[in-house]
């Protein structure tokens, strides 16, 4: 891969995380536990899709306009999506929605905080806009983790279960591969390895306030960044891409 292709792929990875989580969150519309929370989840979904749009616009530009942001979002086969496995995990229940958001937002606060210093001015400016949104997502998710963890016996059980179930998808967030390494070298990308300690501290603090326990060490799943997804991904895409696939000649 040349440097352009590397940067293009980097944008897809970041954009896909935002797109796929945005898609998951948009499934929740009209299903919230209380009307106010419905609006809150929609706001987070909107932040995510807006971020995906910004990153795909940039990817499209890098690619010389050969494909538009919508082409990138809607017209790739599953194995070309580069998101982390965590964000494609389904909305099993509200505890899973919150645990997924807690894990990813705690990571993104650190990641985008570092990306703000990128030598690539466009990525840096997307990061500065994004970091404000993510801080809110993290606060929202942390507060709910505490309420559910330290709520009723049923909610404690469900929150702990979600924390445990999704744990195996968190290792992937900190993996560095050749794309990460090369962009780190050129001062564009983020060094994710030092983030893991801060992330764990953050999660630990929230879980202990929530009277929950950190999951035990376990084998971590990965593959999303290489396009190898969980079974949930195909269903998510077939729904998301339905109109684009069924009417390929149409403009929307």
């Amino acid at each position: 891969m040349n440097s352009k292709e590397i940067l293009y792929n980097y944008c897809l990875r970041l954009g896909d995380d935002a797109l796929i989580l945005g898609q998951r969150l948009s499934e929740l519309c009209s299903k919230g536990p209380i009307l106010e929370e419905d609006l809150a989840q929609t706001n987070i979904a909107l932040d995510m899709i807006g971020r995906a749009q910004a990153l795909f616009n940039y990817a499209s530009e890098i690619n010389g306009g050969k494909n538009t942001a919508d082409d990138i979002a809607y017209r790739r086969p599953e194995f070309q999506y580069r998101n982390h496995l965590l964000v494609e995990q389904p909305n099993e229940d509200f505890a899973h929605v919150i645990a997924r958001q807690l894990y990813i937002s705690a990571f993104e606060v650190l990641f985008y905080g570092s990306l703000e210093n990128s030598k690539d001015s466009i990525l840096a400016s997307i990061a500065s806009k994004t970091i404000k949104e993510i801080k809110y997502h993290l606060q929202h998710a942390s507060d709910w983790t505490v309420r559910l963890g330290d709520g009723t016996p049923e909610s404690t059980f469900k929150m702990q279960r979600a924390i445990n179930n999704l744990w195996m998808y968190t290792g992937e967030l900190f993996e560095m591969d050749s794309i990460d390494d090369q962009l780190l070298k050129s001062g564009i990308g983020v060094d994710k390895s030092p983030l893991i300690e801060k992330w764990r501290k953050q999660i630990q603090a929230t879980l202990s306030e929530a009277t929950l326990t950190m999951p035990e060490e376990m084998f971590m799943q990965s593959g999303g960044k290489q396009g190898v997804h969980t079974e949930h991904m195909g269903h998510l895409l077939s729904e998301m891409q339905y109109l684009q696939r069924a009417y390929p000649d149409a403009k929307w």
Partner: peptide
């Protein structure tokens, strides 16, 4: 919402339903 055919359409529809 989950089948909105463009990023723009999805954002508009989400904002409207919200």
């Amino acid at each position: 919402i989950t089948r909105a055919p463009s990023l723009r359409a999805k954002q508009i529809l989400l904002a409207k339903i919200q």
